[in-house]
Design a binder for these strands. Structure first.
Lengths: 215, 215
DNA sequence: TCATGTGAAGCACTTCACAGCA
DNA sequence: TGCTGTGAAGTGCTTCACATGA
């Protein structure tokens, strides 16, 4: 039954966005240099893990000095692609879709909601939360002409599968899936599930498990 | 610098909610028995991984037959605590807060938004999206009298730290943190971060990394 | 002297492969 | 015969500890 499939080569790399966030805080505070200890503390990892992670991409520090904040942040931004603005397609302009369209912090990560797709005739053609709304039939055109690579899937559960397949056919590269539906798409499409219910179950279980000793 | 701290004893267990979701689908389809292969396929894991995970909690299958869907689902629900309804406190009744208050699938996981907290006088005292809104000063009372263990943090970034500390003092057990702020709380509080920006960066990076071969 | 970068040891999780049972 | 449950092997990530260089 199926080998080690869902284990793509993520060699510690998904921690880079967290380092990036910590570096921005240090930059805002006016720090010019930081150490692997300080940065690791801010990011919530160990110092050696941080150094290993960074060393995977190059040498950014100076022995005896630490890391130059500005330069390291630039390097991380370059690696992550957050040094440029990238367009995102919002699929499903319901409550969650509107909340995300208004979610300011996405901008700071270099993402812009370029357009939205929704089945409701009442929404199509209008600009909602600063985003123009199109019918699902326009999906492929929007993706192609806009050069859009990423989609946020915020449709009702029953519409998730069809919408995701439409996105895959349109050539989208990655989907952030907010629906409680496990999508089965070609491996060329990166899918990340964000299921609020599963996340709540996870923390709830963690509480009942480790829930003996309190500080 | 700080040992292996943020690595709580999650022994493969965070996959249980995914099995639960798959089992509910099978139950809806009227299946009485399933196999580790079928269930693993639905959940997106390997069959041996599934069997190991389940065997951690007991013996639920019959050799040669497979697993009885109804019984296994009951067992998983019992383990996860999803067999009973649990109250959740919503902190921050903004766009995202309202979207989550309206998010139907949470109910199917056994969670109910029991109350909301918001600083806005225009919201306090009203019922929004079916949830009554209280001022932040009522946090401790709500948690105590309602026996609430879980909170959803959906306030603006600038208010996150203070709101989280108030929750910790009120005795909340776990926080699902939707703000792009790294919370530093006593270890007795379980914190799970759900940062849309970081998630998008993660998939974006995955695309640029593995982005050579398409099907 | 001090902190980075990195080989080596250690650890945990995943997969393999088969004994056991219906 | 077929599938579960599980010890054993395998793999990859994390931590340790020190050589290196400022």
């Amino acid at each position: 039954m199926r080998k080690a499939c869902e284990n793509p080569p993520k060699p510690t790399v998904e921690r880079l966005p967290i380092y990036r966030r910590a570096l921005e805080i240090l930059l805002d505070e006016g720090c010019e240099y930081t150490s692997s200890c300080e940065l690791a503390e801010l990011a919530g990892v160990t110092a050696s893990r941080l150094r290993k992670d960074l060393s995977f991409f190059g040498r950014f520090g100076t022995a005896g000095m630490g890391y130059p904040v500005r330069e390291l942040l630039d390097a991380v931004n370059s690696i992550l692609g957050t040094d440029r603005l990238r367009d995102v397609l919002l699929v499903g302009m319901g409550n969650l879709g509107r909340a995300i369209a208004n979610h300011a912090p996405l901008r700071k990560c270099g993402f812009r909601i370029a357009a939205a797709v929704d089945v409701s005739p009442a929404k199509v053609g209008r600009v909602i939360c600063g985003v123009r709304c199109y019918p699902p039939s326009e999906t492929a055109r929007l993706v192609r002409e806009g050069g859009i690579e990423f989609a946020l899937l915020t449709v009702p559960p029953g519409a998730a599968r069809e919408a995701a397949e439409r996105l895959a056919e349109a050539g989208i590269k990655a989907i952030l899936n907010f629906t409680p539906v496990h999508l089965r798409l070609p491996r060329s499409v990166v899918v990340e599930e964000v299921d609020f219910g599963i996340l709540l179950q996870k923390v709830a279980f963690a509480v009942t498990q480790g829930g003996g000793e309190n500080a």
